Computed example of a mutant assay.
Amino acid sequence: MQSVSQFKIIGCGNSESLRHFNNNALLCCTSGNLLIDCGHTAKLALHEQGYGWADIDAVYITHVHGDHVFGLERLAFESRFKLNTRPKLFLEPELENELWEQTLKGSLGNINGKSQVLADYFDVQFIQDHKFSFGGHHIHSIPVDHAPDKSAFGILIDNYLFYSGDTKAIPEVVNELNFEIGFHDASVAEISPVHAHFESLKSSYSVATCKKLYLMSYEDDWRLAAKDIDGTFAGLAEQGQVVTLP
Rank of each mutant, 00 (worst) to 15 (best):
M1C: 08
V4N: 15
Q6A: 15
I10H: 04
G13V: 06
N14C: 07
E16S: 14
L18G: 09
R19C: 13
F21G: 07
N24H: 08
L26Y: 04
L26M: 13
T30I: 13
G32L: 10
L34I: 08
L34W: 03
D37R: 00
C38E: 05
H40C: 08
L44R: 09
L46Q: 07
H47Q: 14
Y51M: 13
Y51S: 13
A54I: 10
I56M: 05
I56Y: 04
V59K: 11
Y60I: 11
T62S: 12
H63S: 12
H65A: 13
G66T: 14
D67W: 13
F70M: 14
E73I: 15
F77E: 12
S79D: 08
S79T: 11
R80F: 06
F81E: 02
N84F: 04
T85L: 07
L89I: 10
L99E: 03
L104Q: 08
L104V: 13
G106S: 09
G106T: 06
S107D: 15
G109V: 06
L118M: 09
D120Y: 10
D120T: 05
Y121S: 05
D123W: 09
Q125E: 14
F126A: 06
H130D: 09
K131D: 12
F132W: 03
S133E: 10
G135S: 02
I142W: 01
I142Q: 01
P143T: 08
D145W: 01
A147R: 14
P148F: 07
D149Q: 11
F153G: 01
Y160I: 15
L161G: 07
L161C: 11
D166I: 05
D166Q: 08
K168N: 15
A169W: 00
E172F: 13
V174G: 01
N175G: 15
N175T: 11
N175S: 14
F179T: 03
E180F: 07
F183K: 03
S187Q: 05
S187P: 07
V188M: 05
V188H: 03
V194G: 01
H197E: 00
S206K: 10
V207Y: 14
V207S: 13
C210P: 04
C210N: 09
K211S: 10
Y214C: 01
D221P: 03
K227N: 14
K227L: 08
D228I: 01
I229Q: 03
G231P: 03
Q239C: 05
Q239Y: 00
V242Q: 06
V242M: 11
L245I: 14
L245Y: 07
L245G: 05
P246L: 15
P246K: 12
